[in-house]
Amino acid sequence: MNMIQAINSALDVMMARDPGVVVMGEDVGYFGGVFRATAGLQKKYGKTRVFDTPITECGITGVAIGMGAYGLRPVPEIQFADYIYPALDQLVSEAARLRYRSAGEFTCPITVRSPMGGGIFGGQTHSQSPESMFTHVAGLKTVVPATPYDAKGLLIAAIEDNDPVIFFEPKRLYNGPFNGYWDRPAQNWSQHPAGEVPTGYYRIPLGQAHVARAGEALTILAYGTMVHVALAVAAEHGVDAEVIDLRSLVPLDIATIEASVKKTGRCMIIHEATRTSGFGAELSALVQERCFYHLEAPVLRVTGFDTPYPHSLEWAYFPGPVRIGEALKTIMKD
């Protein structure tokens, strides 16, 4: 399966298992979603469980919260992560705090799916990676899969979770892994082991990282698209990197990170999102606090620049092979 099919399969599995699961969002119903993630679901489960919504992100989210309070398990979709901002009040002030402010009387078991990330010439409003806006919010969980196998297992776990989960899907990975070499032929998931996805139910617990490559020379922390870029660039440079795919940012698998950095003594953090106050800053601080005496070089961040995501300058902006390669030389030199 590609990642779209894996997500579709996760939704299908959960809708079949739990009559409380409902899918809603702009174009998700009859049409099956602009990325096809919900294709076929309305036909199979009916219009009261899979339905198109008006174009109002605050409405989609607020309505989903109300459905969750009733006892359903809504999976709303925000068409692009760039358009999640109108829903911020509902997510930050309501979804994240409902359990806390009601001391558990009301809960918010919703999973907000949204395509994120660049590398597709999406320009300013189809490329953003707003994960740090959500990792900063107490009460939300934030998940970013990097493979079809993980996307399905994590989405099932997110839907089953009784807390609100922001589930960001790197759209650059929908059809195939992307290693950052935009000028080479596109790959697809059928040639990748993680494209092997069981058709039935399985889950990958939130809060568990995946060691995408074991190594001794340095630790690379990445998630989403950047996992594949990190693997390719490290291989090209012949660096024995340990690449950790975080998978879930909150809750974070700190034990895996800590063990790895204590072993390698070096840590590089890669994300597409802009640098200042990005999630990399939190990772860097955690590594510094917990692994200080094991560090042989400063923790290095390779990220998007602190600019809006540009259109024509996409490959100068994207933290790709050139920038990561230079950073690798720097961190291994110390």
Binding site: G62, V63, G66, M67, D89, E94
Partner: peptide
């Protein structure tokens, strides 16, 4: 909630669920 009018779409969602 202290945030004004947020309960409005939530009520609609609850009613839709019902």
């Amino acid at each position: 909630s202290g945030n004004l009018a947020t309960q409005y779409p939530q009520a609609v969602g609850w009613a839709m669920a019902s």
